[in-house]
Amino acid sequence: MDNRKEEILKAHRFRFACKEFDENKKVPKEDLEFILEVGRLSPSSFGFEPWKFLVVESEELKEKILPVAWGVQRQMSTLSYLVIILARKKKDMIYSSDYIRYMVKDVHKFPDDMAKLRLERYKSFQENDFKLLQNNRYIFDWAVMQTYIPLGNMMTAAAQIGIDTCPIEGFNREKLEEILESEGVINSEQFGVACMLAFGYRKEDPKRPKTRKPMEEVVEWIY
């Protein structure tokens, strides 16, 4: 196995859901910026990037989040950074929205004829292929699933440079969104919380080795 492959596997073996960080070691800001850039460059369906990353440095906001986020109780006092990953809701992600038109015309810079075809394909995808318009939650849930692409990429990038992470779903979404909206951080018509990601350096190594099912139970080759 060549060195590049081994380095990638080494990072995945190194990574674990760190429940307590070393409070005396702080992740450099430039390293977090590198990790966020990896997240920004992540792929998404139709290239519409249905996410936003909130880097919470306010100690006051962290204190308000703590009672509604049981999954970060142990990490909050020792983590270097807390990133809240938001997913866009139907208001932005429906085929006719200003956001989608902005993405197609201003970000992707498609000429008018190609932009029209792109929007028609996206409309058909939402209406017919994935039937995302049958329930207001469907588009949001579809966007949430996509946020796990940058989530995974950021965790891997962090592991490759020796930084620990913990992905967090342990929170009351409704109450957390109420806090963020009351603080003027989000507009709940546009965004909902997908997950959170804590960064830091482990206080100690995991107490047991990584466990996974064997390859033959995970992969099936179809010939």
Rank of each mutant, 00 (worst) to 15 (best):
G200K: 04
R4T: 15
K105Q: 12
N3W: 06
G162I: 04
K89Y: 09
R121T: 11
N128R: 09
P206S: 05
M93P: 06
K89D: 09
D2L: 06
A17G: 09
V144K: 00
R13M: 10
A69P: 13
E7L: 15
L54R: 02
V144C: 00
I8N: 09
L176W: 10
D113V: 11
M215E: 15
G39C: 07
K90F: 10
L117S: 14
K52H: 14
F125M: 07
V218M: 12
V72D: 07
K5Q: 14
E60D: 15
A143G: 01
E216Y: 14
K109D: 04
L86H: 05
L32F: 03
E60Y: 13
A158P: 02
V27P: 07
F46I: 08
M103W: 04
I222Q: 10
L86F: 03
F46L: 08
V219C: 11
G170T: 00
L117D: 13
Y201R: 10
M76Y: 11
S45R: 07
T211P: 02
Y148L: 01
D2F: 03
G152F: 00
V68G: 05
W51F: 04
E6F: 10
M155R: 03
G152T: 01
A143Q: 01
V38Q: 09
Y138F: 11
M196P: 04
W221I: 15
D129Q: 13
E60R: 15
E204V: 14
M1A: 14
E57A: 00
V55R: 04
Q73S: 14
E178G: 09
D31R: 12
K213I: 02
N136Y: 09
V107T: 10
F34A: 09
S97P: 09
F48Y: 14
I139K: 01
F16L: 05
E33T: 12
P43R: 10
Y102E: 13
F140Q: 11
I163G: 11
T156N: 13
F16I: 05
S96R: 12
M103Q: 14
F46Y: 15
P167Q: 00
D141M: 12
K90C: 08
V193R: 01
